[in-house]
């Protein structure tokens, strides 16, 4: 009979595991979008256009927000609650700025006469709209997560903050960051 391994007692927190599995699932969704894009690109009437310049700045912003969420996690672990609070709020703010910049990028495309949706739109632009749009929704979900824990820690009289939840938010935040970098490189290379 086999002897039970030591991994049995050092298991990852089940909620964190849940998040990792969910990340795998979200990856599949974007893999489907981007592979559909590749299939479609080789067909006729594909519109070629430059990505909005603002996407470069939004990339910087989301990388910056990944750093701030990492610092927030570091501060809560060393019990510096006030510094943690400022970093986590800055992270959420940067997330919102990122979303706004993406939408600004859409209007930049519109100014150049590239229509994302509606009658007469080209699949190349529609794909960009749908994929970037759904990424923005995932960033917004992260912002809502941060607001949720911030508000619930305000209500809590003991001012106790659950580190596991913050670790999960930080993991998720890094994930949407990496996801955006993947999408950005993808759209730059594959056209």
């Amino acid at each position: 009979m086999t002897i039970v391994g030591s991994n049995e007692t050092k298991r990852i927190h089940s909620h964190k595991f849940f998040l990792w599995a969910a990340i795998g699932s979200i990856c599949m969704m974007f893999a489907a979008f981007t592979s559909a894009y590749i299939v479609k690109r080789n067909q006729s009437k594909w519109l070629d256009f430059d990505l909005p310049k603002v996407f470069w700045f939004s990339t910087l912003i989301i990388i910056l927000s990944s750093i701030t969420v990492h610092l927030a996690l570091k501060k809560i672990k060393s019990n510096e609650i006030n510094k943690y609070k400022s970093f986590i709020i800055v992270t959420a703010f940067l997330g919102l700025v990122f979303c706004a910049m993406q939408l600004f990028g859409f209007s930049e495309l519109k100014d150049h006469g590239i229509q994302l949706f509606g009658s007469g739109s080209n699949p190349a632009a529609s794909f960009l709209g749908v994929i970037v749009g759904f990424h923005v929704l995932h960033v917004l979900a992260g912002v809502i997560g941060i607001l949720f824990i911030s508000i619930s820690s305000l209500n809590d009289k003991k001012n106790s903050i659950n580190i596991v939840t913050i670790e999960m938010i930080s993991t998720y935040w890094h994930f949407v960051d990496v996801l955006w970098i993947y999408l950005f490189i993808f759209f730059m290379w594959i056209r």
């Binding site: 969704m29 974007f30 489907a32 979008f33 559909a36 509606g118 739109s121 529609s126």
Partner: peptide
Amino acid sequence: SGFILLIFDRNFGTS
């Protein structure tokens, strides 16, 4: 993903 693109085709005029 497939359904999302379908919804866009049905309701938002994409191709």
